[in-house]
Each structure stands twice: as C-alpha cells, then as structure tokens.
Design a protein around this nucleic acid. Sequence first.
DNA 1: CGGCGATGTTTTATGCTTAAACTTTCCCGG
DNA 2: CCGGGAAAGTTTAAGCATAAAACATCGCCG
Lengths: 162, 162
Amino acid sequence: MDRRAEDGVGDGVGDDDRIELRLWLRLFAAAGLMETRVRRHLKRRFGATLPRFDVLAQLHRAPPEGLTMGELSRRLMVSNGNTTGLVERLAVEGLVERRPDPGDRRVQRVRLGRAGRELFERMVPENRRWISDMLAGLDSDETEQLCRLLGRLKQSVLESNE
Amino acid sequence: MDRRAEDGVGDGVGDDDRIELRLWLRLFAAAGLMETRVRRHLKRRFGATLPRFDVLAQLHRAPPEGLTMGELSRRLMVSNGNTTGLVERLAVEGLVERRPDPGDRRVQRVRLGRAGRELFERMVPENRRWISDMLAGLDSDETEQLCRLLGRLKQSVLESNE
DNA sequence: CGGCGATGTTTTATGCTTAAACTTTCCCGG
DNA sequence: CCGGGAAAGTTTAAGCATAAAACATCGCCG
C-alpha cells in the first residue's frame, strides 16, 4: 500500500539506480523484440530456429575439419548438454556431420554438411536485411554510437567479478 | 564456393550492413550475459528464476484486486499458455493466489500472496545492486547515452513494419 | 604397469517458451 | 430464446536451456 519507490515515479533514491534499472529494462526489451522478429522470420522463411542458425553460423566460419563439441559450446555460449541436443537434431536433418576424432576417442568433431552450407548461405542475406530494416530508424551516427556503447557495456559486465 | 562476403573480412558490401550486424550481435551478447548473471543470482540467493521474478514484479505493481491471466500475459509479453504454467507453479509454492472472477466465469484473477510480496520486496534491492555492479564500468554519461539510444532502438524496431 | 585426477561428452531432471488445438463462457443479432 | 462467432484460458507437442551427475577416455606419476 505504501511502497512505491521502485514503481517509476518515486523520488527517495538517487537517480543513478533508476537510470541503471531503466537501461537494463530497455536492453532486455530491445533485445527481446529483435530476437522475436528474427525468430519469426527464420521460421517463416526457412522453418529454422535461432539456435540452429547460430550453430550453422559458427560451423560456417570454422576450419574445414570442424569443431569439437566443447569448442562449439564455448562459441555459442551455451552448455555442453544443450549443444549435444542441437547438433543431434541438425544431424538428423542432414545439415551437419558428426564423427569421432581419430586421435582422441573422447572427442566428437562436427562440421557443416553440403545441405547445411547451402541453407546457411541462403539465410545470410535475408538475415542482414531483417536487421537492417529494424535499425532503419537510427541514423549512422546513432548506429555507430550504440554499437560502441554496447561494446563498452559488454566489457563492463565481463569485468564485474562473478 | 565463391561466397565469402559475410565472413568478416570481405569487401564487396558497404560498411553499413557490417556495423548493423555487429550492433545486433553485441546487443544479443550483452543482453544474454546480463540475463545469465541475473538468473544465476536469483537462483543462488532466492531459489527463483527470472520469469518468476517478472511475474512477481508485475503483480506487485498491479491493483490490489490483481490481474487477469490475459492481462498478465500481455504485460509479461509471453504467451497465454506460458503464463498458465508460471502461475500454476507460483501458486503451488504459495506465492500467488488465483481465483475465478465472480463476474465472468472465463476469467481467472491472480494476485500476490503475502509470502510473494515479502519475497519480492527482499529481491528488489539485491536486483538493483546486481545491475549496478554490472554497469560499474560505464560512467554516468555513457549510461545516459546508452539508455537513450536503446530507447531509440526500441522505437525503430517497433516502427519497422511486420 | 596401475591408479587417478583431468578432460570431453552425454544423460537426467527440471523449467521456460511457443504455436496450435481445444474447452468453456460470453454476447449479440435475429 | 438461440445460434454462431469472439474471447479467456488450458492443454499438448516440440524445442531450447541449465545444472548436476554419470560415463568414457586420456595422460601422467610413481
């Protein structure tokens, strides 16, 4: 009944906290909006999902011998178990190839199959256009500024311990 | 075979596309990093998850008679089915109360229980500190600029049709 | 050699998320 | 009345995600 400090119009706390929270909420909202759009486009045009697209993108830029599961997980910034499932589904669809490493029997190597490569290369220009459309309201100065500040933000988050 | 424009060092396309893609990737990465941290903190300190926190936050700022399932879904920007499951789990834990609307038998009203209110009010200051820590590397000018540009970005995404 | 800690991957349990199908209830025009 | 949409919510099937435990293999030290 008498709590309102965190509801947006209170004034008992310094503005720093307020603007930081707002930044976080806006970041979250903007990223979510864009992600939802990209996901919808991917599904509609290619019957694909964002995580699958990310896997294809990583494998596309990987050396021809492919990546280990662990390396792929690290690059996708997801858990190992998650990667196992993603690659499994992509392998069933014939988009990626998975084979044991000859030198180390613990290791699985994954690389893009022909179908996966072709699909990804059809996706790239469309993806670029979707992003471009969503950023059309920003002029090139704003785009550059925002890109720079997001880099600084990422750095700040990584430097904050734990 | 001869496609390489999107791999990062090609030169056939204007820089605009490149910086826009980079902006998107950085936004995605930064938001994901922060989200992961917040999720970990929530779990460690309160055994809670981010979606649950979001539900509590929406109910906390709602009128005392609570929200309908549909209104809650809209505010959380998630599907109705998702909300059903979330509220179900929170109700089992005794944090929220769900009761049929007397006027319209299709409608369920949800509101914060005492335990839910107390839990949320313990979460708020800690959440604020986590965010603050992650933004510690930005000075107040950068924070304000970034917040402003994220607002512009959100606007741009919403204005891009479809 | 033989054990043992380190490393790479999968499995398991749980939870979040959506789209689409479905159920129930409301309301409105005949 | 009543018949047919429209609206509110739930269920279902599939996928994504994590942490933690289990499993398999490696490399090394004694």
